[in-house]
Design a protein around this nucleic acid. Sequence first.
DNA 1: GTCTATAAACTGATAGAC
DNA 2: GTCTATCAGTTTATAGAC
Lengths: 194, 194
Amino acid sequence: MITSDASERLIESTRELLWERGYVGTSPKAIQQRAGAGQGSMYHHFSGKPDLALAAIRRTAEEMRGKAEEQFGGPGTAVERITAYLRRERDVLKGCPVGRLTQDPDVMADPALRAPVDETFVWLRGRLGEVLAEGVARGELSAALDPAATAATVVAVLQGGYVLARAADSTAPFEQAVDGVLGLLAAHAQSTAS
Amino acid sequence: MITSDASERLIESTRELLWERGYVGTSPKAIQQRAGAGQGSMYHHFSGKPDLALAAIRRTAEEMRGKAEEQFGGPGTAVERITAYLRRERDVLKGCPVGRLTQDPDVMADPALRAPVDETFVWLRGRLGEVLAEGVARGELSAALDPAATAATVVAVLQGGYVLARAADSTAPFEQAVDGVLGLLAAHAQSTAS
DNA sequence: GTCTATAAACTGATAGAC
DNA sequence: GTCTATCAGTTTATAGAC
């Protein structure tokens, strides 16, 4: 078996559909069809739509943290690592698979479904705050910079950049927003001719 | 008559439900119930759900532009007006009624419904760009600042701030993101002891 | 303008056979 | 584990009376 049993295919199909259509817009039937599984199979492996969505959301959140850490834990100065993170290849027009869930009322209303979304952004802001604090400590960034607030700004630029890109049906505003925040950050960079 | 006929109540109910639950999550039945109108009434005034949604979205977009212009066209320096805009009283946890529509696949798939969303953000970025360019021209802001890119960043911080606030079920990350971008912008401010 | 009746398809399951 | 049958309720309308 090549690790693609029905349970696995159901989770992956749910991840795709949650990203494309959100929780409210995704029906069990659509999931089953994409996964090539029947009703009986789905309800054997999962108690229902919320249970399956939870498995899908947890996996997506974990994947997102892993990808972000690739840039945060990489080489370079704080600004270099944040630039690498912001300019990383992304499916901009599809948006953020975790962030889009915040617009799903049924996800936000269910504490179990909401938890992984909350935790992802808490972690992301915290980790970015660490990178920025490191930059300040090393003298790469001005001491006037507030690491926690700036971390929230950087995450917000990404999430908001997706919104602008989808509204425009173009990646251009996303890239502009990223350029803008990096331009602002550059003014806080200290010239450390080490 | 106090300008609250059935047509009017249907549009206002749709505006509320689109904000709370999105297009996919809003049924004609729910709209009718909130408006206190029957099926016949709704289908007499509007050809269907998309037609009613279009009227609702257009009104919401227009209202959003009007509110933004209150701050952009107000007194003060560029940074003061942008600060007023970002710190304006908002229902942060409800998010942006226009921005949330970008996550609605059925809205983005319909050119008529999508147009007012697109136009709103084009206008918003353009208008903010003008304010920033004015700040540069007046010597309030560094000439190194890119008005168009920074405008996209400011709009993205707002839209992303809503995402972070909803994920956390708290306005705190929104306020942090706003503080962060204003802190970065302050570094670009020129000391003009006029 | 608004009402009620009707309807075909979909939603989110449960039940029990295989 | 997976299948088919069934089901109560919802969705998005249309038709025609009032």
